[in-house]
Amino acid sequence: MTDHQPQKQPEVLFDGLSATGLARRFGEVHAVVHMDLQAPSGQVTALIGPNGAGKTTLLLMLASLLAPDTGNISVMGIDPVENPAAARAKIGWMPDTLGVWEALTAREILSTMARFYQLPKTEIPARVTALLEKVNLTSLADQKARVLSRGQQQRLSLARALIHDPQVLLLDEPASGLDPGSRIALRSILRELAAEGKAIVVSSHVLAELDEIADGAVFVNQGRTVLAQTVDQAAEQGRRYAISALEPNALAAALTTLGVAVEAGTTRRDSLTVGVGTEADAAQLLRDLVTAGVAVTSFAPATGALEETYMNMKVEQP
């Protein structure tokens, strides 16, 4: 975004989903003040922020449901405000509210969505069956959506967002309500989709989860993008480690001699939390502790990389 072109001309075509300078207010409430987001194709971008930070509003704007007051959105080069139909053919959206038609079966819901997306009629049954297989709902395909559990409805909602094979996938809290098995399945589906070259935006609160799936993260707070970084960058930054030893007193003494400040722990009582600059520093600290004769039983990052960034943001909860 270094080149300043006249406003009329389209920007250099970004392969994926990009949004710049978005703002949106509802009456007096500025839900989104200024947000930028780049979600390149083939990558999973995490959208992280506290409740009320404007994540859902941002996703609604990206999904072409809300018009931004200012700012530009480009979905694979298409402006959804000017040409919503063309943009929608490329966008798959999974809302945070489930919203299923309870009287219809999973198969009927997907077929109906396919018709709404004007897919060729002959291709619909096969497409629906494949998607049901993908989200592991084949055995429940002809059950009314009413009887599906929350996690199953969540998976159905994901299949619904994928029905027209979109290039850009917007997922609002996709993992909430999923059991561990489904979470792992979701993770592998998302990685698969990213490998197929789709741009994926995931908003979530489960930050440890995001460490595993996301390539990059955008942190938002109070309607603004605060930071955008890759997960590798996040891992490189300072991070807290939780250490426990057979004799906690000896560990504390050793840390004091080494000149490492002990932070108030937030995890198990018998472990101590210390701040460490880089992973090399962490390795050095462990070596020093062992050399000092401390019987270290565990030595691990206290938080995920993205969680670390999130906590360092010192977000203010309204």
Binding site: A85, R88, I91, W93, P95, W101, M113, F116, Q118, R160
Partner: peptide, 13 residues
């Protein structure tokens, strides 16, 4: 109110 309207609006309908 059931959250299904936006699902339809997001399609090509």
């Amino acid at each position: 109110s059931a959250g299904t309207l936006a699902i339809m609006q997001i399609t090509l309908l």
